[in-house]
Computed example of a mutant assay.
Amino acid sequence: MQRTLALTLTAATLLAGCGKPKPQAPKLLSVKTARIAEANFQPSIEAISVLESTTTVSLRPETDGRVVKVLASDGERVKAGQPILVLDNVQQSAALDSAKAQARTDKLNAERYEFLYQNGAASAKQRDQYVTQAIASRDQALADAATLGYKYVRSPIDGVVGDLDSVKLGDYVQTGQAITGIVNNSTLWTLMQIPATQSGAVKIGQTVKVSSQTDPPITGEGTVSFISPYFGISGSSGSPNALMVKATFPNLTNELKTGQFVKSQIIVGNKQSLAVPVQAVFMQAQQPFVYVTVPVSKALPKIKASASVPEKQKKKLESLPPSTQIVVQRAVELGELQNNFYPLKSGLNKGDTVVVSKTALLSNGIPVKSVN
């Protein structure tokens, strides 16, 4: 009888225990976090600008004539002095040959009369007459050579030949007519229009970074080499309230081209600042905020004192282990975004931990678990 009663009491105790399950730990939202630390920031002025070669010329003949030879082609790399076109030059070649022959004859006569003068067989007047004639003949040959040289349209610089389709064999060209361009892209200018409000920060020698609008971008780096002494003039191609700034840089890859538009950045400073990842920042009414993770034990006193937090939520937070991390919304003041980080002006301290994922799912007081 006693044994039966003991078994009954044991069974009753087990049944009572099953009716009161142990409280389960709350399920925490998993988030990624980042610690606030210092980073190097380089404030810059940005502009979309056009590239221009520091060495580019229009190829123009120095005399009239008909094209008898085309010695280069579009896109060909040429050296300074290399002929590009040859104009008809039969008369000029004949004139030069005649002038050279006359110059040789007059030189021999001058040398002969110098010998005769030295030996007393000719007067000084005769010698001087032939010497003068030899000098005149030599100069005429040089002049005729120059005239013939104008019939060879040569590249004045090392570079690449532009479009030559406008001139073909047999075409008649005139003095000063633009035939094509010769461009040397080894060194380029980027021509930037800087707003007047930012012009005071620009200095000669500052670093300028350029990147093309291609994918992937082509990059380059140079320095400010010219700052216009005046702002743009109304009615000109530039803005009347902008300053022309030139930067010179080597085109190391030779992939950037004259006339190409690029994004230019003038680096106007260099400073250390606390950095906030762009993924941590969200906006409310044009005010940037972040979510900071803190132990519930640290945040609880303020939460209890807050009239805006419901009592139910306060009790829920009180029941959490003291080390549980919760998120707290915090307003921040930030600088200009650079390389996916904002320089911090105020609102956070070094070492603070901010949430960088799932921020749209968060609100003040939500417990979280870092999965970094």
Rank of each mutant, 00 (worst) to 15 (best):
A37N: 11
A37I: 08
A37T: 11
E38C: 12
A39D: 12
A39I: 08
A39C: 09
A39Q: 14
N40A: 11
N40R: 13
F41L: 07
F41H: 04
F41W: 04
F41A: 05
Q42L: 12
Q42H: 14
P43V: 04
P43W: 04
S44G: 03
S44K: 06
S44I: 01
I45W: 08
I45H: 12
E46C: 07
E46H: 07
A47G: 08
A47Y: 06
A47T: 12
A47D: 10
I48R: 10
I48A: 10
S49M: 11
S49I: 13
S49G: 13
V50Y: 06
V50M: 11
L51Y: 09
L51R: 07
E52G: 02
E52V: 01
E52R: 05
E52D: 03
S53T: 11
S53A: 15
T54E: 15
T55K: 13
T56E: 11
V57M: 02
V57K: 01
V57E: 02
S58D: 10
S58K: 09
L59A: 03
L59Q: 02
R60F: 05
R60D: 03
R60Q: 13
P61F: 05
P61H: 11
P61V: 09
E62W: 00
E62D: 03
E62G: 02
T63E: 05
D64G: 00
D64W: 00
D64Q: 01
R66W: 03
R66V: 08
V68C: 02
V68E: 01
K69N: 03
V70Y: 04
L71V: 14
L71N: 14
A72N: 01
A72E: 02
A72G: 05
S73I: 12
S73F: 11
S73W: 08
D74G: 10
D74K: 14
D74S: 14
E76V: 14
E76R: 15
R77E: 07
R77K: 10
R77Q: 09
R77G: 04
K79M: 14
K79I: 09
K79R: 15
K79D: 08
A80T: 13
G81S: 07
Q82L: 11
Q82V: 10
P83Q: 03
P83R: 03
I84K: 01
I84H: 01
L85K: 06
L85D: 04
V86E: 09
V86M: 07
L87Y: 00
L87W: 00
N89V: 06
N89Q: 13
N89E: 07
V90G: 04
V90E: 08
V90S: 06
Q91A: 07
Q91F: 02
Q92I: 05
A94Q: 06
A94T: 06
A94V: 04
A95Y: 00
A95Q: 02
